[in-house]
Design a protein around this nucleic acid. Structure first.
Lengths: 174, 174
DNA sequence: TATTGTTATACTCTATAACTATA
DNA sequence: TATAGTTATAGAGTATAACAATA
């Protein structure tokens, strides 16, 4: 049962540097937030990187819909294109996904006629993955779309800034 | 049934700039990939941002385990800390999650005694979210840990580069 | 004995529809 | 009529265990 309560308190957007001071809230302070202060989270690399990744992925989903490719599909097929004969295991390693979760993807690609499996020349257990000609054609298009998309999402960056961003991100994860 | 096949072909790691040329693979080329070439993917912002985010999250999971907080838990409680009285709806908006998926989280926080719900002063349908004193204490610690973690994951960046990275990422998603 | 690819399965995360109470 | 919070549930994504074939 909500009390009718008193009045709205304005939150001063002025100066609160992202701190970690354990200030205890007075237990009787009625407050209504008008605008959410996310400055602390926005000071964290992980938060910013995730937000940026999700923003790019949103555009990616739109533009790759014509090819019926999810981001992970695109990544897998692109790696196969640039590494013909790559094995499932290697693909899993490069994409950071687990073997059981790749099986279905491979099967779908085969059903769509984009991909072929061939006996591995050195290891009888493994199979080399290769794009078919239609697979090549599709991925040539899709990679062009990705390159265009890249320009659009980094629209507010100079080419130099874009390369800097790449380098800095790789210093985080490599 | 795999054929014993022929011989291994070395892949020249030399110069292949990330291109989009639709080169058709000769259908009888036996190849074994020794090292996966990920250069095309590494030229894409989305890929790099995602990899960086995942790398940071890995460290995050380790260090926040002592508080039993997942990344989303930390983000939610941090926002509540810096925006006492925030509503579920506002929290969902800020975190990019859907209302039904926040309910369980809120309940767990309440059961742990970290969070209190109070009637909203202006809207009888809504409830303001506030940290309890133990919640404040936990988050003061956790935010310190996050700040330390931040220094560690950006170890290979200067302070200036770290700020640049932040700015560039925000130019992508804001 | 270890590894590749596979199946089955469980667990988590995310998304949708529908309800209630308040506005 | 619209919105805040909730419930139930469906779907996608991710994880583990175990197996056959090959190294």
């Amino acid at each position: 049962m909500p009390t009718p309560a008193t009045a709205a308190a304005r939150r001063p957007k002025a100066s609160r540097p992202a701190d970690t001071t354990p200030v205890t809230l007075p237990p009787d302070t009625p407050l209504a937030i008008e605008r959410v202060d996310s400055r602390f989270l926005e000071s964290l690399i992980g938060y910013n990187a995730r937000r940026a990744a999700l923003a790019v992925i949103d555009v990616f989903l739109e533009r790759m819909a014509v090819y019926a490719l999810r981001p992970v599909d695109f990544s897998a097929l692109s790696l196969i294109r640039h590494n013909p004969g790559i094995t499932s295991r290697q693909l899993c390693g490069a994409l950071g996904i687990l073997p059981p979760n790749l099986v279905g993807m491979i099967h779908r690609f085969e059903k769509r006629g984009l991909l072929m499996r061939r006996p591995h020349p050195l290891d009888g257990r493994a199979q080399g993955l290769h794009l078919t000609d239609p697979g090549q054609a599709l991925m040539a298009q899709a990679e062009c779309t990705a390159t265009e998309l890249e320009k659009d999402v980094s629209q507010r960056l100079t080419e130099r800034e874009r390369k800097t961003l790449m380098t800095l991100l790789q210093k985080i994860y490599l």
